[in-house]
Simulated assay, not measured.
Amino acid sequence: MGTDRLDEVLDAAYDCLTRYGARRTTMDDIASAMGVSRSAVYQYVRGKDDAFRRLAGRLHEQALRRAREAATADAPYPERLHGVLAAKLDLVLQLAGDSPHGAELLDGKARLFGDICTAFTGELREVLTGLFSEAGTVAGATPGEAADICVALVVGLEGAPEPRGLLAPATEALAVGLLGTAAPARDG
Rank of each mutant, 00 (worst) to 15 (best):
D28C: 03
G165H: 12
T121G: 06
C117N: 13
F113T: 14
D50R: 09
G47E: 10
Q94H: 14
D29A: 04
L167A: 05
E61W: 13
Y44A: 11
L131Q: 03
Y77M: 08
Y42M: 11
Y14L: 07
G130K: 03
T3V: 13
C16G: 01
A139N: 11
T18I: 07
G102V: 13
T26S: 06
V127H: 06
L10D: 11
L81D: 00
S39Q: 15
L6V: 08
L55D: 10
D74E: 12
P163K: 04
R23P: 05
D7L: 10
L59G: 02
L55K: 09
L166H: 09
A67D: 01
D187N: 13
Q43A: 12
D7P: 14
H101C: 00
G21L: 08
P143T: 06
E172P: 08
G47N: 14
K88N: 06
L93T: 03
A147E: 02
G159N: 07
A96Y: 05
L153K: 11
K109Y: 09
D148Y: 09
D50L: 05
D49G: 07
G188M: 04
A147Q: 00
Y20L: 13
S32W: 03
S39E: 11
L91C: 02
T181H: 07
R19V: 15
L93G: 03
R65C: 00
A73L: 07
E145W: 13
G188S: 04
G180T: 02
L64M: 10
Y77F: 08
G144K: 06
R58G: 00
T118H: 08
A51E: 03
G130F: 01
R19N: 09
F113E: 05
A182F: 08
T181K: 12
A51T: 06
V84D: 01
A86Y: 12
A13L: 03
A96E: 10
L167V: 01
K88V: 00
